[in-house]
Write a protein that binds this DNA or RNA. Structure first.
Lengths: 168, 168
DNA sequence: CCATATAATACGGAAACCATATCATATGAC
DNA sequence: GTCATATGATATGGTTTCCGTATTATATGG
């Protein structure tokens, strides 16, 4: 006589279903990445910023106050390239350079909150659509999804660092 | 007398909790986007491809066989810029140009499957880490997450198109 | 057959990228 | 302290990319 199990449990433990689901998810994640890159490209065009500038602006937002060296390392850019990026971002009023008090060689970068609301405005269409999507999930489900996103971001940090040291 | 509800239900229907969860999720999504862009930048560096080239390669993979015009529109690039992108991708052996039989002005782009395994290899670290993350979820949960990712991708397509027509 | 439209590419000037050199400042040895 | 060396950011210049325009080849409609 066979052991009967709950069908839902059965599905949950089928390793083939798990692998299929994981692979499908990786494909979906890749598609999302490309689409978000395209969206960012359009946002950047409206704001007269190159793709890399917008990425750096996001990085400054995340890590401010941040030094130029640290940002170059985060972004994987040559220091001289970053000087150009910072020049453009500062000229456009998106960030400001400040001298580091403790190390007068270094510069510290900060975002200009008012100016960055202009960027937020450009994302408002996307943000509204995401809100509509979120409305179809419970807070618990949203937290499940958000947790996955955060863990994937951490994985990205590690995978990026790994590639960096291999490339060096 | 107040109407008593199931606490879990209560949480699920609290609009403030829902908004908080949605906002947190948007932040997490933005962080993930930046990190995936950084990862891609490193992958591109290893493959001697610019960021935009890698994006176009992804788009070709998604839509092949695809014409140059269609790709330019998808990527939001000037036709002349795309010629340069295609030149580099073809020189590197990532894609091939073919003449369209029905319209001999047009070119059709296809990926080179063998060559693209080299890219897959560069992503293997990240893919392995994602597999580990996925192992902590049931197939049902993974499907919930994947569905969210797909819906968000569609939202991205719409938001991108909206920005495009505004910019024109 | 001709006019016009469309797909892709060639051309050229402007801009960006980045290896290297440079300048200012910091740190450690003595 | 003084000097040698290291480090942070930027200037310089050659190479590459970007993109507006012109060009070539093909399609389509009259």
């Amino acid at each position: 006589m066979t052991l009967e199990v709950n069908p839902s449990d059965e599905l949950s433990r089928d390793p083939r279903a798990a692998r299929r689901a994981a692979n499908a998810l990786k494909t979906d994640l890749r598609d999302l990445r490309v689409q978000l890159a395209m969206l960012n490209h359009r946002v950047g065009a409206q704001a007269e910023l190159r793709d890399i500038d917008l990425d750096c602006l996001d990085l400054v937002s995340q890590h401010e106050p941040v030094g130029a060296s640290a940002l170059a390392k985060l972004a994987g850019l040559h220091p001289a390239t970053l000087t150009g990026v910072i020049d453009r971002l500062e000229r456009g009023g998106w960030i400001v350079r400040e001298r580091d008090e403790n190390d007068r060689r270094a510069v510290v970068l900060r975002t200009q909150p008012e100016r960055n609301r202009d960027i937020y405005q450009l994302y408002s269409g996307m943000n509204g659509l995401i809100d509509e999507i979120c409305a179809d999930y419970t807070p618990e489900q949203l937290e499940l999804i958000a947790g996955f996103l955060r863990r994937t971001t951490v994985a990205g940090v590690h995978a990026t660092a790994r590639l960096e040291e291999e490339g060096a």
